[in-house]
Design a protein around this nucleic acid. Structure first.
Lengths: 102, 102
DNA sequence: AATGTATATGAACATATGCTCATATACATT
DNA sequence: AATGTATATGAGCATATGTTCATATACATT
């Protein structure tokens, strides 16, 4: 009630923002989300394109699922993932464009 | 030369994007950058507002300096920091607005 | 010159993160 | 029912990260 004269962020807001940026902070997750921004993908397809182990990809998808950044549908044994947060994809694309036009 | 049919990101681009998002992924750095988005601040002012140790703040400022996200001017013993990357501030504010209007 | 003040920096430590390896699960096929 | 296939998951491990503590640096003041 004294030392904070200017508008500041609530700790919830800061935590939420941190969570979003953390999700985007890892190269593997950037690649996955970028792929999904272009097309629905099966896990095995992601695994092949990124040239990673199935387990590593699956762990990252699990993390992205928990954050509600991706969702999936199942068809037999195949799981097809799509992105589930338009805003986060927009942010990702903005940063990528900004980097590429340098 | 065969398994990559769609446009994909160069690893440099991915690394650069990762670096930017990593910078924004920590609550302390979010608070610092948000403060600096509003006004030029001395280290001691940031320390008081965030209620953290001088050392912790200084370490984070050092990290942000290395990433060229902030710069400073010196006036006697006091160092005044400002942000140095308009685009990153824009991204931060976009994410914050998005979170707050939920 | 000596002391004070604001900030930076290195080492150490605890926690978080991302991967691998082994294995579980669930559906498909035979 | 038995085997195969696609994916998920838990444990373990190595590395990265953020803080603290102690101390260095550089300028100011007396």
């Amino acid at each position: 009630m004294e030392q904070q004269e200017h508008a500041f962020l609530s700790s919830n807001t800061v935590e939420d923002a941190s969570r979003i940026f953390k999700a985007l902070a890892d190269p593997t997750r950037i690649k996955i989300l970028y792929l999904l921004s272009q097309e629905e993908c099966s896990v095995s397809h992601i695994t092949e394109v990124l040239n990673m182990t199935q387990s590593a990809v699956s762990h990252q998808l699990s993390l992205l699922r928990n954050l509600r950044l991706v969702k999936y549908r199942r068809d037999g044994n195949t799981f097809y993932y799509t992105y589930d947060d338009e805003h986060v994809i927009t942010i990702l694309n903005q940063v990528i464009s900004h980097i590429e036009c340098k």
